[in-house]
Design a binder for these strands. Structure first.
Length: 805
RNA sequence: GCUGGUGUGGUGGAAUAGGCAGACACAAGGGACUUAAAAUCCCUCGGACUAAUAAUCCGUACCGGUUCAAGUCCGGUCACCAGCACCA
């Protein structure tokens, strides 16, 4: 028994692959292409943990299999290297972020290469490389030119620890997505990207792509499209107060109105409001609440009634009071609502608290004095003049038409999605290529001046004032206006980390191009990404942002497809041994280096694919990994029972054909765990058979190669299984007719209970099978003296005899 | 609260399209080999009743339904996970 030495074998083959460029994508566009993509890593100081290789290995398996099937495969990697952790580390240790980034990348690269992933390293990219971010800036300029990037004074989320603004997508449960620190509101002038202009297409085009349902649902949810109507109410001051509602059918039941604390009419009405002081106080309190507090106290409704101004309900000319309350958000709809307490839970709570009238206008529910009746499907309109007797849906249509006819309302679609806050007050990011000129306003720098390089600074500490560290670089800031030649200053904020990752998959197609982000031919040939795997946590961040940028690039004719990724899958997390999320503080982190060192990369890869359902979280198990190592050794030792023969022998024919089918299908269906189980079953069968022919071993080796590339190359060589490397072979074909066993075992049931098992030929006719079944002693006993009601034979599966006394 | 998902042995997990529940592993127990240990190989391994690996019964979160047949389909309940959360 030869002991398998993974260390020598693995480094040997890794070197050969790299030297020969075996996994470089070819520019031969006559071949069918396959573009597999994983989310490129952020090279943090901690290095890799065992969670990283799960998706890399999964798509590596797919990529290797597709290469064997003759595809021209692009499977690239790079570094998403701008960002706060690096910058913070740099500040703490007084090392420039550029150097930190370089060190981290080196470490990551070494770790990833030790796993034998078939990345095309000749296409490696780095978002902090000026040759790369030149094009990130170029895309920003195109957005600016089309009016989709604009600077605006607005109320933004401010992370008190990162000391910079956050996008809405980066605020999770009222705290910073990255560092979990408190998020407060600040009014600041920020660069914004008009992602809302693409809201509809970002929803509708989900029909064009193959994403898991949960991903599509989450994106739709986040964009939050709702269809309804705007209604104009007149105030007693003569002003118009417009509200947005999805239930214009309930207009007759509107008994009061609510405006948000930030609503501009409050300012306008200042001299008419008898209780202005009280309202000002309420506004102030509302503004001081952080997002976290605001969601925490969401239960209890507060508010102040405006004294001196009321509104008129246009359908019945009744005067109704107006309240100010923070349960109405200024950023959604018109920042004002009509309140229908009988048919809206929030309005109902508010009405109960302030003792306001509750008028039922949709009947069919419970007593509206006791709870709101919100069901749209079953109710019938009542107390509603010309709407009486209609269903909710009919009433909505009729009311919208009536509002439009009277010119006091209109159909309207609203979204929860807000524009993307795109500037960050930090150093380690792409400079925004815009200058501000007093005469000309915001002017883009000339494209020939790209990349606008990040200047070297001595201190890149963030400031509490909300100014970028670049603001101190007076030499760099002061410049000439590209438009009028006058004095101008550069934008000192930088782009968020999501900028570089919003288009990186395009750069891989043609990574060294200096004239375009990628050539037309490369884009035409490689687009779209065929299979993109990534984490669920990016569903409403990177995945949404990059779809938006890609659609924009499509609109301006840069890319050939409306969607960037044809198919998306999502891996589950690898948890610690105790079933908790791996983290330093929990002390349950496993470093892949240790596993590769002790068991080898093949074992590591095999285990991560065997651990369970790829899409679900799975706890790390140090003892299960030994089972995978055993399998590798059993495979390696097949050489001891090798016999000559260039065919698959008849006794093993069906086992091999079935395995070829199963392994191939399972890899495509992200069921790596059962593909490996099938290979384990096959090796069990071969071992108990006692010998393996060269042909059989060759087939087995190719099937295993995508999972365990090193040991399979080694066996291929040692046993002289064929010309060249395994990586240069063809994926085996199976013969459907040979997948069938010559005899199969079927179960015989009587009244659904198993009474016997029969070994029969699968071709046997129903009559004969039933006859055999009824000849069985146990079956005979069970049906003796009973009347046979029904006899069922499902071919190749089961017999069921239904009897009654 | 809304949306999506999950629930199967001691453990990770299998089970086409409704057709033998527990594949493949791990752990555990027993045996072989060995001076011994490790490694390896062989056997057992959901539960109950059993001398029995004879027969029978129970068993896929819970309750009910459809069906010759339900882990799978339908209705309801519970628990857990993820995302969103006063979005009018």
């Amino acid at each position: 028994m030869v002991k398998y030495n993974h260390k020598n074998v693995e480094s040997k083959w890794q070197k050969i692959w790299e030297d020969k460029g075996v996994f470089h994508a070819s520019d031969d566009t006559s071949k069918e292409k396959f573009y597999a993509l994983i989310e490129f890593p952020y090279p943090s100081g901690q290095g890799l943990h065992v969670g990283h290789p799960r998706p890399y290995t999964a798509l590596d398996t797919v990529a290797r299999k597709r290469r064997l099937q003759g595809y021209n495969v692009l499977y690239p990697i790079g570094w998403d290297a701008f960002g706060l952790p690096t910058e913070n580390y740099a500040i703490k240790n007084h090392i420039h972020p550029e150097i930190v980034t370089k060190q981290n990348i080196e470490r990551f690269k070494k770790q990833i290469q030790s796993l034998g992933i078939s990345f095309d390293w000749s296409r490696e990219i780095n978002t902090t490389d000026p040759d790369y971010y030149k094009w990130t800036q170029w895309i920003f300029l195109q957005l600016f030119k089309k009016g989709l990037a604009y600077k605006k004074e607005m109320n933004v989320n401010w992370c008190t620890s990162c000391k910079c603004v956050l996008a809405n997508e980066e605020v999770v449960n009222g705290v910073c997505e990255r560092c979990s620190s408190e998020v407060i509101h600040k009014v600041k002038s920020q660069w914004m990207l008009k992602i809302t202009a693409y809201a509809d297409r970002l929803i509708n085009d989900l029909d064009l792509v193959d994403y898991p349902p949960r991903v599509k649902a989450q994106q739709k949810n986040w964009i939050g499209r709702s269809t309804g109507a705007e209604v104009d109410f007149k105030a007693t001051t003569g002003d118009t107060l417009t509200v947005y509602t999805t239930r214009c059918d309930t207009l007759f039941g509107a008994t009061y109105m609510v405006i948000s604390p930030e609503h501009p009419l409050i300012e306008k009405w200042a001299d008419k409001l008898e209780n202005l002081d009280e309202i000002k106080k309420y506004q102030l309190e509302a503004s001081k609440k952080s997002d976290f507090e605001r969601t925490e106290v969401a239960k209890d409704k507060t508010g102040i009634r405006l004294k001196g101004v009321e509104a008129v309900n246009p359908v019945n000319n009744t005067q109704i009071p107006i309240f100010v309350s923070d349960y109405v958000l200024v950023s959604y709809g018109t920042g004002a609502i009509m309140a229908v307490p009988a048919h809206d839970t929030r309005d109902w709570e508010f009405a109960k608290k302030f003792d306001l009238p509750i008028i039922e206008v949709v009947k069919g529910g419970k007593d509206v004095q006791k709870e709101a009746f919100t069901d749209c499907a079953t109710g019938i309109l009542t107390n509603s003049g010309f709407l009486n007797g209609l269903s909710v849906e009919e009433a909505k249509k009729k009311m919208t038409a009536w509002l439009e006819e009277k010119k006091i309302g209109r159909a309207k679609v609203n979204y929860k999605l807000r524009d993307w806050v795109f500037s960050r007050q930090r150093y380690w990011g792409e400079p925004i290529p815009i200058v501000h000129c007093e005469k000309c306003g915001f002017v883009p720098i000339d494209e020939s001046e790209l990349p606008l390089k990040l200047p070297m600074v001595d201190s890149y500490e963030p400031t509490d004032t909300g100014e970028s560290p670049l603001a101190k670089m007076t030499d760099w800031i002061n410049t000439k206006c590209p438009c009028c030649g006058g004095k101008a200053v550069r934008e000192t904020d930088t782009m968020p980390q999501w900028a570089g990752s919003s288009w990186y998959f395009l750069r891989y197609m043609d990574p060294h191009n200096n004239d375009a982000l990628a050539s037309k031919q490369a884009l035409e040939y490689w687009s779209p990404v065929d299979w993109y795997n990534g984490g669920m946590e990016h569903t409403t961040l990177h995945l949404l942002y990059s779809r938006f940028w890609h659609k924009f690039l499509y609109d301006i004719g840069v890319v050939p497809t409306p969607e960037p990724y044809a198919k998306r899958t999502s891996h589950g997390m690898i948890l610690g041994e105790n079933g908790e999320k791996m983290s330093k503080s929990r002390g349950n982190v496993v470093n892949p280096d240790d596993i590769v060192n002790e068991y080898g990369a093949d074992t590591m890869r095999l285990y991560e694919m065997f651990i369970g359902d790829f899409e679900k979280a799975a706890p790390w198990s140090p003892s299960s990994i030994r089972g995978c190592r055993r399998f590798i050794e059993r495979f390696y030792n097949l050489q001891n029972i090798l016999v000559d023969g260039d065919t698959i022998r008849p006794e093993l024919e069906s086992a091999f054909n079935k395995a070829i089918k199963k392994v191939g299908d399972d890899i495509e269906n992200i069921k790596f765990n059962t593909a490996i189980a099938a290979l384990m079953s096959l090796i069990n069968e071969v071992t108990s058979f006692g010998s393996i022919s060269k042909k059989e071993l060759a087939v087995f080796t190719i099937l295993l190669n995508p999972f365990a590339p090193h040991v399979t190359e080694e066996i291929w060589e040692i046993c002289s299984l064929g010309e060249g490397m395994v990586a240069e072979q063809s994926w085996p074909e199976y013969d459907e007719s040979k997948c069938v066993e010559q005899t199969i075992e079927i179960a015989v049931q009587v009244n659904g209970k198993i009474k016997a098992k029969l070994n029969i030929s699968p071709d046997l006719e129903q009559n004969e099978v039933l006859k055999l079944a009824k000849d069985d002693e146990n079956v005979k006993k069970a049906i003796e003296g009973m009347n046979i009601i029904k006899e069922i034979y499902v071919k190749g599966r089961i017999v069921n005899i239904v009897v009654k006394p």
